[in-house]
Amino acid sequence: MIGKVLGRIYIGLVLVLLYAPIMVLILLSFNNSRSRVVWNGFTLNWYRSLFENDAIMNAFGTTIGLAAASALIASIIGLFAAIGMYAMRKKDYKTFMFFTDIPLLNADIVTGIALMLWMVRFMPLGFSSVLLSHITFNIPYVILSILPKLETTDIRQFEAARDLGAGNLYAFVKVVLPDLMPGILAGFFLSATMSMDDFVITYFTKGPGVNTLSTLIYGEIRKGIKPEMYALSSILFLMVLIILIIANHSAKENNGYEK
C-alpha cells in the first residue's frame, strides 16, 4: 500500500516538473502587465490584440502552412517509398534504411547547415527552402510509421483481390490502403508535429522576412516576448488537447496507433 502511494506521489512530481512551465505560460497570457514576473491582475486583452498583431498572425499562418504542406508531401513520398522498400531485397532495403536514418540521427544543426549550404546555390532562401527542408526531415518519420503496418499486412489478401479480377490499383486502394491508414495518419501527424516544433533547421534554411512562430519567438527573446505570443500558444495548446482527447476517444478500440 505504501509503495502504491509513493508511486503516485512520484508520478505526481514528474507531472509537476512537466507542467509547471506550461502553467507559467498560460498564467502570463492572462497577466495584465508586460512584466514576466509580476502578477498585475487578470485580463483578456492579449487574446483580443493577438488577432491584430500582423507579425504573429503571419508567423502562425506560415507555421501551419509549412506543417500541413510538408506533412502531406512527405506522407505521399514516404508511402510510395515504404511500399517500394518493402518489396526490396535485404541489401537494398538496408541501404535505404541507412539513408532514412541520417536525418533522424544527425544533429539538427548539421542538417540545417548542410541544406542551407546546398540550397543557396540554386534558390533564394525563403518559404520554399524551408518547405523542402521540412519535407526532408519528415519523410523518415512517415516511412518508420508505415513500414511496421506493411509488415503485418497479409499480401495474400491483395493477391486474392487480383485473382478475383481487381486491377492493381483498385486492389491496392481497396485492400492494402485501409490496412496502412493508421500508419499513414500517424506518420502525417508526427510529421506535422515535428515541423511545427522545429526551430534549428528552419532557422538556418529560412530567408529574411520569413518567420515561423519559433523563429519569431527566438528573435524576440532579447526585446522581450510579446504577451500575445503567450495567448496564441495557450490557444494552440488547448486546441491540441481537445483534438487529442477526441482522437483518443474515437480510436479507443483501435489500439496501437494512438499510442
Binding site: V14, L15, L18, Y19, A20, P21, I22, V24, L25, R36, V37, T193, D197, F199, L213, S214, I217, Y218, I221, I225, M229, Y230, S233, L236, F237, V240, L241, L244, N248, K259
Partner: peptide, 22 residues
Amino acid sequence: IFVMILPMWMNFILRILAIQML
C-alpha cells in the same frame, strides 16, 4: 502516456523561457 507527451505541443522556446522565469 497522453498526459506525459502533451507538454511537447507547447512551443519549446517558450517552455525554456518559462523555465528561465522560474
